[in-house]
Amino acid sequence: MSETSRFRSTEGSHGALKGAQTAWDMLSEEQMQKHITTGCEELDAILGGGIHCKEVTEVGGVPGIGKTQLGIQLTVNVQIPVECGGLGGKAVYIDTEGSFMVERAHQIAEGCISDLLDNTAHRLKDFPACPERLQPNSFLSNIFYFRICSYTEQIATINYLEKFLEEQKDVKIIVVDSITFHFRQDFDDLALRTRVLSGMSLKLMSFAKKYSLAVVLLNQVTTKFVEGSFHLTLALGDTWSHACTNRIILQSV
């Protein structure tokens, strides 16, 4: 920034710091903000109305508990049209484990559409354009899928997203399934891993804020020995535990 523009930005009485916002403005913005429903009322209640935009949410659980399922559900739910109370956005799905099932996504989209038609049919009458958009295929076409096969690719993809999001302004959710996989396979230098991961999380944080989108990171779990008993905790260690805004862990009952 040049010297002159810096002086100009300091002229106002207060709040003149460039890019700063008062909490009052943020509050009214936050109240306007819609959340992405997970499709499960209880989970939505825990999360305060669903997955929040501008935040990074981490979801963990043992294999088979339904993390990927939740991820796919969210990529569909984010596309619920504005007229039906959704965000009407698009989704980015970063798949590191190869567990994204397109047939399942198709089923979920069909389910979501039939739910919408049942619940909000009276509202949809006013919007004749909707029926064409409410097709499973149009839902699928708004999911941008990246298949990642190594941690190098993962770093590169996260870096590329910056450019991608600049072009695709409608993207409202980024799901990374899972953030852990490649970093738990063949990464010996733990200190380096911490650095790379925290850099990555800062990057995702900045996307979340800048484009006002939700970031959902799926994570594996590990057991931790605390005071004589084993607890289930999210993987990647203590430093990572600070990297996300919200952390939830799925457990079967």
């Binding site: 920034m1 300091t10 710091l17 009052w24």
Partner: peptide, 29 residues
């Protein structure tokens, strides 16, 4: 609520260079 919230300023910072920049701006201000 409005009085309190208006005197809290928030700024997002996502890397150390940005932090330095904000701090220098603040110093100037």
């Amino acid at each position: 609520l409005k009085r309190i919230m208006s005197s809290i300023l928030c700024h997002s910072v996502f890397d150390i260079f940005e932090l330095m920049d904000v701090l220098h701006q603040l110093e100037c201000k």
